[in-house]
Design a protein around this nucleic acid. Structure first.
Lengths: 130, 130
DNA sequence: ATAAGGGTTCCAGTTACAGGAAGGTCAAGA
DNA sequence: TCTTGACCTTCCTGTAACTGGAACCCTTAT
């Protein structure tokens, strides 16, 4: 299977598939003419990568997930631990974003948003909360 | 004031302050010996940048905020609009992260996390949701 | 004179690709 | 057979916002 078809089938871009080959996370076979060649199993692994990336795992995380996936003797606890770390990340980001949102929302509420130059947002940015 | 002191006073790192000088968002004065020199007002602007960045404004947003800040005839509506865009961004990210969290949490819950190789997380990544 | 602790510039590395140039390959039609 | 167009290849650059480090200059104190 050509790279284009592999990309389409796995939900990735051609650029990304080539990149995954370059960094060695998903090596492609080569035909005599140098073209990359993807088997059904390779496409499956690419789709695995696509899904893992879309769930916010880093490419490095994916490297680990892939080796766990390939290891038929793995312990599911190892995978669970990786996923839990991701959840913790997400929780941290959620907390941070919620706090940002609160601050910005209160600023926007305080700002009249008219033609005059008084602006509580700029005042706050300039040091109101030091 | 030396760069070190300016950095400390504004809550930035020396590297960052130098970077802001390089990209022109906050140009420093220079002494005869070539050292950067920061006035109280410069430090104030650096602190403004620090606060805006910590609220999730991009450096490019900050460029606009700075010019609005410097412009005494600005309309506060302009600033309000920028802040609103940021809030919308944040809402989008919150929704995305919440959805990720739901998925990961249900996977982690389904995974026994023991020594055996059966792992719903890997199964899902491998195509459970196609 | 020298050593410590500033400062300077410039270059590489980070993440996960995207864009684009230059050129090789393949299948089909005139 | 030649050409055309759609593929494919590698390689280089750029992205955002810095960080780390090398090589070197300046200042101050001992």
């Amino acid at each position: 299977m050509n790279i284009q078809q592999a990309a389409t089938a796995s939900g990735l871009t051609v650029k990304t598939v080539r990149y995954y080959d370059d960094i060695g996370i998903m090596k492609a076979d080569r035909r005599a003419n140098g073209y990359r060649d993807y088997s059904a199993e390779s496409v499956h692994k690419l789709a695995f990568l696509q899904r893992a990336r879309s769930l916010g795992f880093s490419v490095d995380d994916c490297r680990q997930l892939m080796s766990l996936y390939d290891d038929k003797d793995r312990a599911s606890a190892d995978v669970k631990a990786l996923a839990q770390i991701r959840i913790d990340d997400i929780n941290r980001k959620l907390a941070e974003l919620n706090s940002l949102k609160l601050t910005l929302t209160s600023l926007v509420t305080a700002c009249k948003g008219d033609d005059r130059p008084d602006c509580p947002i700029l005042e706050d940015l300039a040091g109101g909360h030091q």
